[in-house]
């Protein structure tokens, strides 16, 4: 006599699923911009593949190599330089360098700084 086939499980019949109101679950309130920015941040930490544009990177110039030049000038010239510098709110060094540039010496505009102390102060803020 052959064995009778095993009857199927009644689990599904004895535990019917009730219908859930999934409309109660609301969509995320995060806006697209924050979602993209968060994705970029997390993705950069995990090496994720992306087609999102990378965050702008501030161009950092390599520090300029500087040399010190100590010169002696007549006192009246030094006094005149000091007065002009105070009037124009620049340094005596700036006035001398500008004069050298005007005389034909090479001096790039980016390296002609009116007052380096102001630049340093801005960087600290």
């Amino acid at each position: 006599m052959s064995a009778k086939p095993v009857l199927p499980s009644l689990d599904g019949d004895l535990a019917p699923r009730k219908r859930l109101d999934l409309k109660a679950i609301k969509p995320s309130a995060a806006d697209d911009e924050s979602v993209s920015e968060n994705s970029r941040r997390i993705g950069s930490e995990w090496g994720a593949q992306t087609s999102l544009p990378s965050a702008p990177i501030e161009q950092i110039k390599p520090p300029l190599a500087l040399a010190s030049l100590r010169i002696e000038v007549p006192e009246y010239l030094d006094r005149e330089l000091a007065l002009k510098a105070a009037e124009q709110r620049v340094t005596k060094q700036f006035l001398v360098m500008k004069a050298l540039q005007a005389a034909g010496y090479r001096l790039d505009e980016a390296d002609l700084v009116e007052d380096k102390r102001k630049v340093k102060a801005r960087r600290k803020v």
């Binding site: 979602v35 993209s36 968060n38 994705s39 993705g43 994720a48 593949q49 992306t50």
Partner: peptide
């Protein structure tokens, strides 16, 4: 599969 900003979004 893989890590992607698509998945993170």
């Amino acid at each position: 599969g893989g890590s992607s900003t698509l998945a993170l979004k």
